[in-house]
């Protein structure tokens, strides 16, 4: 186990260095950051000074090493727009996205898995066909459109729920959370539903496919032959057997939504990471982009690691191989 941890840690370092190179090339080396840093009417002297100060006259590899050095010290620079350390800025936006994403992915899983299992268990029933039809809708209708419809119906027409913002928050462990107040929950509901529809469709399809396959296996037949009820079989045999692909998708969806909830956060003015990155791209706030991309890389590394741990917890055969 310790060997496994060390191995994963080294892998993570390598991945981060590679990502850092890509981010560096993508964000720093393409285009000229100087044009953003100084005003167009600055003197030639100021221009040269700035270039020297930021090390832009150095060869590319030296700039990269310097960039890596700063990264290693956790120094990602200051935001041009907010004029604060970008790490603090990005981390301050993380909780909002975290709670939105968790609500969306967990909701989609808790609802989608049972529905999908039912559809896989009774594939020819009307309900199953209806669910599968709806899941196609969930896949194909664009998120922004559903978001707008949700706002129109529930915020504008019916007036039941707010159209945007985080609402009232409570500070726990120095971080603000919306889901702990009623008002915050109300604000959370629409964007979470908006984000979760696609995932709901995916979870349903995944659970359905797994269930359809597993109910035909000898494992299920043998359980039936010993007199176990259909409910017991679904709950104790099928669910554990289909949970591995579900956990995988849960993790990956969680990661990608955390990183790219851009559309929903913009529509619902949810002050999270997605909204921040869109704003920083618009204002060419490069340090924010770098910090964000590095954070996303770290998130995926952590999530993949957690998925692996979950595999081991769910499947004894994987445990044995370690």
């Amino acid at each position: 186990m310790l060997g496994f941890l060390i191995q994963r840690f080294l892998q993570a370092i390598v991945v981060l260095v590679v990502i850092a190179a890509l981010v560096f090339l993508g964000v720093f080396a393409i285009g000229n950051p100087i044009d953003v840093l100084i005003s167009p009417d600055a003197t030639q002297q100021i221009r040269l000074d700035t270039i020297a100060r930021y090390g832009l006259d150095q060869p590319l590899w030296q700039q990269y090493l310097a960039f890596l050095g700063r990264l290693a010290q956790g120094d990602l620079g200051r935001s041009f727009v907010f004029n604060m350390p970008v790490l603090d800025l990005v981390l301050s936006r993380l909780p909002a996205t975290l709670e939105l994403t968790l609500a969306a992915v967990a909701g989609a899983t808790l609802l989608g898995v049972p529905l999908g299992m039912f559809a896989g268990y009774r594939p020819h029933s009307k309900v199953a066909k209806l669910l599968m039809g709806l899941s196609i809708l969930g896949f194909s209708v664009p998120t922004f459109w559903i978001g707008l419809v949700l706002i129109l119906v529930f915020a504008v027409s019916l007036g039941w729920l707010p159209a945007g913002g985080r609402g009232e928050t409570v500070t726990v462990l120095g971080v603000e959370w919306s889901f702990l107040t009623l008002d915050g929950l109300k604000h959370l509901l629409l964007p979470a539903v908006n984000l979760s529809l696609f995932k709901l469709a995916m979870m349903m399809r995944l659970a359905r496919a797994g269930t359809r396959e597993i109910v035909l296996t000898d494992t299920v037949k043998f359980a039936r032959a010993s007199g176990q009820s259909e409910w017991t079989i679904l709950r104790h045999h099928v669910l554990p057997l289909i949970s591995i692909p579900i956990v995988t998708v849960f993790g990956l969806e969680f990661g990608s939504t955390l990183a790219f909830a851009v559309v929903t956060e913009t529509i619902f003015s949810w002050p999270g990471l997605g909204k921040l990155i869109i704003e920083s791209i618009q204002s060419l706030d490069r340090p924010v982009m770098v910090a964000y991309l590095m954070l996303v890389a770290c998130l995926f590394i952590v999530i993949n690691f957690l998925i692996d741990l979950a595999y081991a917890a769910l499947d004894p055969r994987i445990r044995a191989r370690r």
């Binding site: 494992t219 043998f222 010993s226 176990q228 017991t232 104790h236 045999h237 499947d315 004894p316």
Partner: peptide, 17 residues
């Protein structure tokens, strides 16, 4: 190889039966 549930212990499977 296919009749027993690979992710449950022997005790758990007998208990379900």
């Amino acid at each position: 190889m296919t009749t027993l549930n690979p992710v449950l212990t022997i005790a758990a499977q007998i208990r379900l039966a």
